[in-house]
C-alpha cells in the first residue's frame, strides 16, 4: 500500500485549490451531499440546458479526497451531456471499487488519478461523495426553482 498512489499530486493540488469552487449563475439544479461518518459536506449547483451541463460549481468542506474528487468532477462534466456524464460516473465508480475498471483508465482522463482509492476501502465514500451529490442534483426537479 503506497500512500503516493492515493495522494497523487493532482489530488493534493485540487484538495488545496479546488476548481469551480463557486456557485454558477445562472443555475437550475442543486444537490447537497453529506457523509455522516466524517462530516464532509458538498453543495453543488449546475446549469442544465437541454441535456447538457453548461456550468457547474460547488462549495464544500472535507478531506482532500472528497474535495479533490468533486473539483476534478466539475472540470470533467462541464459541457458534457447527461448520457456522457452517466457513462463517466459508471466508469469512475467501477475504478474506485474494483479492479475491472483498470482498462478504462484512458477514458477517464484526469479522473484516473483516483484509481488508488480502491486500495483504501474506507475512503471510497470520500471519492464518490461529489458524484452522488451530482446525481442528486440531476434527479432534483425542484432544483429549477433555485434559478436566481
Amino acid at each position: 500500500m503506497d500512500l503516493r498512489e492515493l495522494y497523487q499530486e493532482v489530488i493534493l493540488d485540487h484538495g488545496k485549490h479546488p476548481r469551480n469552487h463557486r456557485f454558477p449563475e445562472p443555475h437550475n439544479r442543486e444537490g447537497r451531499g453529506y457523509n455522516p461518518l466524517c462530516g464532509d459536506k458538498i453543495t453543488l449547483r449546475l446549469q442544465l440546458d437541454g441535456d447538457k451541463i453548461t456550468d457547474v460549481g460547488f462549495i464544500g468542506q472535507g478531506c482532500a479526497i472528497s474535495q479533490a474528487s468533486c473539483s476534478t468532477m466539475t472540470e470533467a462534466i462541464k459541457g458534457k451531456t447527461l448520457p456522457e456524464v452517466q457513462a463517466l460516473f459508471s466508469k469512475f465508480h467501477t475504478m474506485v471499487t474494483s479492479d475491472e475498471g483498470a482498462d478504462d483508465l484512458d477514458a477517464l482522463g484526469k479522473l484516473a488519478v483516483f484509481a488508488g482509492v480502491r486500495e483504501f476501502p474506507m475512503r471510497v465514500k470520500c471519492a464518490t461523495l461529489g458524484w452522488h451529490t451530482l446525481n442528486q442534483a440531476l434527479d432534483d426537479e425542484s432544483g429549477e426553482a433555485t434559478t436566481e
Binding site: M1, L3, L6, Y7, G15, C38, D40, G62, C63, A64, I65, S66, F120, M122, R123, C126
Partner: peptide, 13 residues
C-alpha cells in the same frame, strides 16, 4: 495541513 480523515489514513499507513 490536512483534514482529520486524511491524517487518519496517513498515520494508519
Amino acid at each position: 495541513a490536512a483534514h482529520p480523515h486524511d491524517i487518519g489514513t496517513i498515520v494508519d499507513s
